[in-house]
Design a binder for these strands. Structure first.
Length: 802
RNA sequence: GCGGGUAUGGUGGAAUUGGCAGACACGCAAGAUUUAGGAUCUUGUGCCUCACAGCGUGCAGGUUCGACCCCUGUUACCCGCACCA
């Protein structure tokens, strides 16, 4: 037998799969469907990374198995191609970003195809294709029309060297990710999407989803729901200063207040404040600091007292001072807090530094040492009508009091902020709005979609931080669709997250020009049955797309409340040294090299075998040989084939057990142990010196989802008929998984002393009797008192002696 | 600081969820075959032992006939968030 020529064989089958379109999802909506999805890649210039195939292979195995099980499977692929690296490459090399994208996509596609993934390439999509982003823009317009898109002045990150606005993700440790220059705050007008309006539903609906727990937890924490109360303090100016607190029970202990440096009352009170110079200096200082600096100085509290104005604690009438400090954020709650130094760590630090008195209102700690923040054990003291209550009782009592006396109310707050949706960049979807002096912001007619990106002379961001589209006056100047008067187009573009927020819907019906997808296609395919992707997208892409999907559900475009029924996440593939793979560390493994040297099947098997799918795993170029040997040993079974349709008696139980194991493991994302089971079965077969045709046939089917090329070739060479992709997944019989006789262990006081071969259905009494009859056991219990005897079915006998 | 997670042979990792710890694979050792081998095959391989026995899942306790698994405490590392009142 010749050695296995993977290079020829793999190319041959890849070509045939493409030509016959075997992996195209069927248009027959009466079949049971299975939609499995992996995150579509950003086609970077570096090409595919060995991390990509881990996710793609895992769901390819699922997709291939589901097809064999009779499902109509949709396993699509596409390109999330808008984005900064492409734009920067285009700027540097004076090539149009669309051209760069085209080249990168071609490279990626070739790499993906060399790995033999069963993607339905007839449904390939690209977020930069105007036919695609027409619908991204359409969704934005619906959001705008429902009042969920709004423009707001806000502080953004501004790179002093690139002279451009950066997304939060592009600011790393306070400096620009690209050039390492200082990033400062700059106030600009930005489009925002009201994701906060969906905060509660985004939390509640997680309950019904089959997402792995850490994804659910991370989303819940990110959305950050808290319940507390808003309390109105009245300032000596007569103004009501409202605060948000989760500890209204400690109201009697509020000995001062803090407002954020940006709080509007400061300007309002300007003529009453005696130390306005000092206050302005502090404000200027806070303004100049980036978010990073503001949070970095975390340890040392700073602030200035507002002299000339005080506030009254509504529950006891005490006059208390007001401070400004940057530890209070404008963007959360009301931008003002009541400070209870005895029971809040931050307030405690601030009060110690500024010599503000503390009042203990919850007994149980030592407030001289540190703030006592425990809610579970304390008892209320020094708190008027709350005294003697537990913290939980006090919370309820004070809320009732606040509402009855019209001094506050119960309130829920979220950490989640609205989504900053503008980018001053070229390579993104144009925002389809115009600004008219008379009518304000107006949507362009849907008939004018897609609003295509114009050709520009330069993709460089401009000096003043405006989009590269801004100087394109021909394009910018237009007429108002509303009044026909002169108007200007929005020149900001959408962020990279826009196109990926709904792409899974487009796959259902990717060539539809009349809708983002047909109703029938959406009814049939939605929701995605299984979505796998990286943990790093949990609080961005995954949350954004759930938000868009819920909105589309609300306006009747999609039939399901949630986009994804199940979400799993793969661990990273690390470099050989156990560190994250990166160019700068020099530990990057190129998948092309692996495919060249070992073949796609080996690469696929190795990535699945490397370890627990959910955990990070270091690449090991020595271990991969084991998978190559497995492929070759499987191929070489041809040398020992004998006639016979079924399983030989000695192997029957092993076959049934292995089929069961592989079937269940694939569904549970445990390909590593599925492969181990197949390796073990192969070893067992090899020990017999032969394999029947029937056994080889089953083995080939089992291995096919993991190693599609070599199995297809064996199927063909052995003349099993047709192609593997048209076959049925092998069945197992639970009864036949059981061996007739099994080995159990006999223990004395929990320590193994002997092994017994017994009939599988042996009863307790008999097993214990057999154990006692064993020479070693008899010796061990001789002269001792038997305290207890037990038999664990199919496992062991344990005799406890004294 | 808060939240989530991890710790098992020389290495990657298994362990039916409380029941033989180390499946499967890499590596290593010995042997076979080969002109040769970074190819293939066979055998062995947790530690300590000639052997019986003993010891062993980060560390210290506990519960149990029995603990990698449950409980208490503790250490180290990884990931996410980070003054969210």
């Amino acid at each position: 037998m010749m050695g296995y020529d993977f290079k020829t064989v793999e190319k041959k089958w890849q070509k045939q799969w493409e030509e016959t379109g075997v992996f195209h999802a069927k248009q027959d909506f009466t079949l049971p469907k299975f939609y499995c999805l992996v995150e579509f890649p950003y086609p970077s210039g570096q090409g595919l990374h060995v991390g990509h195939p881990r996710s793609y292979t895992a769901l390819d195995v699922v997709a291939r198995k589901k097809r064999l099980e009779g499902y109509n499977v949709l396993y699509p692929m596409g390109w999330d191609a808008f984005g900064l690296p492409t734009e920067n490459f285009a700027i540097k090399n004076h090539i149009h970003p669309a051209e760069v994208t085209k080249q990168n996509v071609a490279h990626f596609k070739e790499q993906l195809q060399s790995l033999g993934f069963s993607f339905d390439w007839s449904r390939e999509i690209n977020t930069t294709d105007p036919k695609y982003y027409k619908w991204t823009q359409w969704i934005f317009l619906q959001l705008f029309k429902k009042g969920l898109a709004y423009k707001k002045e806000m502080a953004v990150n501004w790179c002093t060297s690139c002279k451009c606005v950066l997304a939060n993700e592009e600011v790393v440790n306070g400096v620009c990710e690209r050039c390492g220059s200082e990033v400062v705050r700059k106030v600009k007008s930005q489009w925002m999407l009201k994701i906060t309006e969906y905060a509660q539903r985004l939390i509640d609906d997680l309950d019904d989803l089959e997402f792995i727990d850490r994804v659910k937890t991370q989303q819940r924490n990110w959305i950050g729901r808290s319940t507390g109360a808003e309390v109105d303090f009245v300032a000596t100016t007569g103004d009501v200063l409202t605060v948000y607190t989760t500890r209204p029970d400690t109201l009697f202990g509020a000995t001062y207040m803090v407002v954020s440096p940006e709080h509007p009352y400061i300007e309002k009170w300007a003529d009453k404040l005696e130390n306005m110079d000092e206050i302005r200096a502090y404000q200027a200082e806070a303004m100049r600091k980036s978010d990073f600096e503001r949070t970095e100085v975390n340890k040392d509290k700073t602030g200035v007292m507002l002299k000339g104005v005080k506030a009254v604690n509504p529950v006891n009438g005490n006059e208390i001072p007001i401070f400004i400090s940057d530890y209070v954020l404008v963007s959360y709650g009301t931008g003002a807090i009541m400070a209870v130094p005895a029971h809040d760590t931050r307030d405690w630090e601030f009060a110690k530094k500024f010599g503000i008195p503390m009042v203990e209102v919850v007994k149980g700690g030592n407030i001289e040492e540190e703030a006592f923040t425990d809610c579970a054990t304390g008892v209320m003291v020094n708190s008027g009508f709350l005294t003697g209550m537990s913290v939980e009782e006090a919370k309820e009592a004070i809320k009732t009091w606040l509402e009855e006396n019209n001094k506050g109310k119960t309130k829920v707050n979220f950490k989640l902020r609205d989504w900053v949706f503008s980018r001053q960049r070229y390579w993104g979807e144009p925002i389809p709005l115009v600004n008219c002096e008379k009518c304000g912001w107006v949507a362009i007619p849907e008939s004018e979609l897609p609003l295509e990106l114009p050709e520009v002379d330069s993709y460089e961001p401009t000096e003043n931080g405006e989009s590269p589209l801004a100087p394109m006056t021909d394009w910018v100047n237009t007429t108002c669709p509303c009044c026909g008067g002169p108007a200007k187009r929005e020149t900001d573009t959408m962020p990279q997250w826009a196109g990926s927020s709904w792409y899974f819907l487009r796959y259902c019906d990717p060539h539809n020009d009349d809708a983002l997808a047909s109703k029938e296609a959406l009814e049939y395919w939605a929701p995605v049955d299984w979505y796998n992707g990286g943990m790093e997208h949990t609080t961005l892409h995954l949350l954004y797309s759930r938000f868009w999907h819920k909105f589309l559900y609300d306006i009747g475009v999609v039939p399901s409340k949630e986009p994804y029924a199940k979400r799993t996440s793969h661990g990273m593939i690390l470099g050989e040294n156990g560190e994250k793979m990166s160019k700068s560390r020099g530990n990057v493994v190129n998948p092309d090299d692996i495919v060249n040297e070992y073949g796609a099947d080996t690469m696929r098997l190795y990535e699945m075998f490397i370890g627990d799918f959910e955990k990070a795993a270091p690449w090991n170029s020595a271990s991969i040989k084991g998978c190559r040997r497995f492929v070759e040993r499987f191929w070489n079974l041809q040398d020992i084939v004998v006639d016979g349709d079924g399983y030989r008696e000695s192997l029957e139980a092993s076959f049934h057990k292995t089929i069961k194991k592989v079937t269940e493991d694939v569904d549970n994302l445990k390909a590593n142990t599925a492969i181990a089971a197949m390796m073990a079965l192969l070893n067992e077969i090899a020990d017999t010196g032969s394999i029947t045709k029937g056994e080889y046939r089953t083995f080939t089917l089992l291995l096919n989802p993991f190693a599609p090329h070599v199995t297809e070739e064996v199927w063909s060479v052995m003349g099993f008929g047709g192609v593997v992709t048209d076959q049925k997944w092998p069945a197992y019989d639970e009864e036949k998984c059981k061996e007739n006789s099994i080995e159990i262990v006999a223990q004395i006081n929990g320590k193994v002393r002997a092994k017994l071969v017994v009939s599988a259905d042996i009863e307790s009494d008999e097993a214990i009797a057999m154990a006692k009859a064993d020479e070693k056991i008899a010796e061990a219990i001789d002269g001792k008192t038997i305290v207890k005897e037990l038999y664990v079915k199919g496992r062991l006998v344990n005799i406890v002696v004294r």
